[in-house]
Design a protein around this nucleic acid. Structure first.
Lengths: 154, 154
DNA sequence: GATAGTAGACAACTTAGTTGTCGATATCGT
DNA sequence: ACGATATCGACAACTAAGTTGTCTACTATC
């Protein structure tokens, strides 16, 4: 039995973990067993038009070296390609492949399914209250960058 | 703007991160700048009567080797001591020092303060709804072990 | 054209975990 | 009593994801 006060962080961490585990269990069932938690967030950051490694690092809140590693992983799985930037000979543009798009669409669908499970168990009103409450707390301190949260993504 | 469905995990992660950051900012102000996020959870797991390294590993959900490393860190800061187990010549019992107890009491007080901040901003009812909702989701899949959540604790 | 800044690669290090192995000690069944 | 089996905690080697620092190539600006 924890000291009072220790409950809330454990609940938040546990629920997050539960969502991510559920996502990757289902992703694996649909042929995306190699996907790691960071991949979905990185693919989102890359966006439909593609960005450079340095920009990816900034958006994720990590160094460009760390972003380069993540990009290498994404490229190896086949979720992105690298192509020379038309306007800047130093830069390479990371672009999502159709398979990357598919993984992202699938992830969104799975998250929505998991949310529906919550609604079934808690009711729409309480799920909405959770989302609104957390949003009020988080947005008041600036947006959350994935890189703010070190290691999880394993 | 993320795809719909990606909101919820980001909210959970961001809120958790916010709590932990707030905790350690205040801990540092009170002379516990060396404390890492895992330390509070490990001290809780050790309990008032002390446990062995192996038991700590089981409670945290990590290997005993990893638990031994955490215990070494706690001992170095002065939060725990190791003493031979009276009944088992193989085992050493990890016991919280007064300074360890102080850190734990302080952490609990800070968490409660942060929760009061939430109540001030959201109202008691909505905070309660968040806690109840998350608890309903997490407990239905077994308790959360700290070790279920790999890296964060840096 | 010199100077200052940015893109991305390479190397070395850090941190927190893992598996596998091992000797010492406990426990249990016959 | 004793042998098989299990557990405690240490050591070594490895992995994964980040970090800082340094470097070259290229861009942009005065």
């Amino acid at each position: 039995m924890p000291r009072p006060g220790f409950e809330l962080p454990l609940l938040l961490a546990g629920t997050f973990r539960e969502l991510i585990d559920g996502l990757h269990a289902q992703l694996a069932e649909h042929g995306h067993g190699q996907a790691r938690p960071i991949h979905g967030f990185a693919l989102q950051a890359i966006g439909p038009d593609g960005i450079t490694v340095s920009e990816l690092g900034r958006r994720l809140g990590v160094t460009k070296q760390a972003a380069a590693k993540t990009a290498a992983g994404l490229e190896q799985i086949g979720y992105i390609t690298r192509r020379p930037s038309p306007g800047d000979a130093r830069a390479a543009v990371l672009t999502r492949t159709p398979r990357g798009e598919e993984m992202l669409d699938l992830s969104a669908a799975i998250f929505e399914q998991l949310r529906r499970d919550w609604v079934r168990r808690l009711g729409a009103q309480q799920v909405q209250a959770i989302e609104d409450g957390l949003a009020a707390i988080v947005t008041s301190s600036g947006g959350t960058k994935i890189g703010d949260l070190p290691g999880w993504l394993r």
